[in-house]
Design a protein around this nucleic acid. Sequence first.
DNA 1: TCCTCCACTGTTTTT
DNA 2: CAGTGGAGGA
Length: 772
Amino acid sequence: MTASVNFLSQLNPSQRIAVEHFCGPLLVVAGAGSGKTRALTYRIAHLITHYQVDPESILAVTFTNKAAREMKDRLERLFAQEMALKQQGQPFNSLPEYDQKRLLSQVYKKTTKKLWIGTFHSLCARILRYDVNKYQDEKKRQWERNFSIFDESDVQSLVKNIVLKQFNLDDKKFNPRTVRYAISNAKNLGLSPEAYLKENSYAKGRVIAEVYNEYQTQLAANNALDFDDLILVPVRLFQQNESILGYWHSQFKHILVDEYQDTNRIQYELIQLLTTNAEPRKSEWNWENRSIFVVGDADQSIYSFRMADFTILLNFQSDFGDGLPDEDTRTMVKLEENYRSTETILQAANQLIENNSQRIDKILRPTRGEGEEIYCYKAEDERIEADFVMGKIQEMVETNPELNWGDFALLYRVNAQSRPFEDNFIRNNIPYNIVGGFKFYDRQEIKDSIAYLRLIVNPFDTVSLLRVINSPRRGIGKTSIDSLLKASQELEIPLWEIVRDETSVKTLAGRAAKSVNKFASMIKELQGKLKELSGTEIFDQIMELSGYVDDLKTKGTEEADNRLENIYELYSAIAQYQEENEDTSLQGYLTNASLASDLDNLDEGQEKVSLMTLHSAKGLEFPIVFLVGLEQGTFPHVRSLNDPLSLEEERRLCYVGITRAQEQLFISHARERYVWGSKEMKMVSQFIQEIPEELINSNLRPTARKVHRKKTVSSSANDKWSVGDRVIHHSFGEGEITHILGSGKKTNLAIQFAGLGRKIVDPRTNSITKIE
DNA sequence: TCCTCCACTGTTTTT
DNA sequence: CAGTGGAGGA
């Protein structure tokens, strides 16, 4: 088919191997900026056009919703371009906008709509909407298909309540956050409360296991799942029911996983089950018309706090592949050519990451020019640091007509660091966009509205019920609620079962009974309309009937107006979802909303400076990057200073930051900075010292670099030497390079000298010169 | 039942 | 320096 010929020609040999891969396992080790997204999208396109794979049987897992959306968009364009040439005989871009849109929507209907592209969480949620009712856990707890997804704050308060109120534990010894974290970790390792207990049978572990168990009971009582369950439950279900696993195994013939280094144990398990159908022995796996294709970079593994485990990536070759050494294997390919950044930036990144002990050998080979040196600014404090960044951006935008605000990104370790920059940007009218931190869905009015919707979809969702039963105030106070709650607990039935029953309410709620009954009939009414009305219509009605909007309107304060605005925005979000997904069910929207992240709001089209954490920046690129707060204790973060493994993760994070930059990188640090309201002295980050001095220009030694640069840089540059080069050594004479050993700082050359045999030489000693 | 004020506590990264 | 939670007053 002509389609494939077209895009294959744009690839380098390694990318081509990746894209043309059809059946069986393949690990793509893809360095930053090496075109891995391209490899992924082109491969999907190739599977469909060249191998006639049914789009419905392709499962592509990405790390963020944004990455998923981008992949779908790219695929749509790719197919639309092909169709433009075939149907109309002219390039897509030259078609009138109307035709472009028509083509894109054709492609959507025919192909991209059918693909299973999304995050682990969204894809699993989708699977569970079909099958969760067939699952039963060890304690016979069950869930229905209209389950709620509890967000982190729901979960926190649930755990807190169990620890403090129900179990009456000492919160010094059992900090609810720590307990919550332990439960999450257990789930990410695939441990049930019982299994957790077995592995943690000491006193504290036993208590946590009990909390975990009670927590599960309450989730089930609410017909709710937490984020971790979205992965854990399908895995369990697949383990206990082979026909359900069989169904999904035959559904997903070609599985692709992006950012494989950030996969955790339970996600790995899921992939493993879907790929192998739980066949235990490798020799029994049937790769006919089936593949597992993962892309990742161990150097960019930055989510171990979420139990991500990059040894999963390192083990791919022995888990799924042929397990042969790098030179001989056919189940691994490395993409090392970097198309994104200048050589200077790549050298900084390569040298920095060399300081890590835990990695697989890989470097980034530059394909672009040397570029500008890195500029390092030492500031007095965080306000001066902000002045510097602001001044530099303004200066560059003014002097360089090619640049606009959207070409700049400001990256920091923790969200709190954005503050001084925000203040500064507001004062100086610099348009900016903060990604992450406060979320739209975290606002009170939004949580309230969502809670109403959740309750209508899933009446067992007691957390939501409690949230809205007296919001807006309708005279249902603490005492009434408590007596209703107590009854539900004693009878072991959901709170809603009490609330919906007029007689029970009359006996229990006293003066508030009338209000409770009114509230209950309102919810009942909308539950009845759930099937006939669309999400937006339900939303409209609940806001009206509940008096929520009226309540805000009568307040008339600026704050209330603001909240109203947000509620209207939520309405548009639901409407937009319905339109884009051809899904008018409220449930679809709710799932989508609970899995949405703030990163999804990042709109590249806007001409605004982007501010975000280094974690959020993964997968993105910007012409100019500012990496700020490079101080010991800020970055690397305090909590990693004493732990070598976390320090390595911080270094990987720094590596991610550096490799976001295409043209130019600025780094800065402050001599002192406010932390918790008091000034602290800060030492410069060790990461700055790990970048070769010659690559950095700074406000402390403005002209230092030019003198050393050429010599040292080129002799430490690994890519200068290649096998077969003729060299002269000052004492051994002429020889030929036969091997290049290691990479970066540790590069050594094996050289065959006439009459002297082979010797290992360190090129950094300047003892050898190349003969051109 | 509701609202306001004060004291305390806890600070990484996110699907 | 936040944001939260509890206590006490209206």
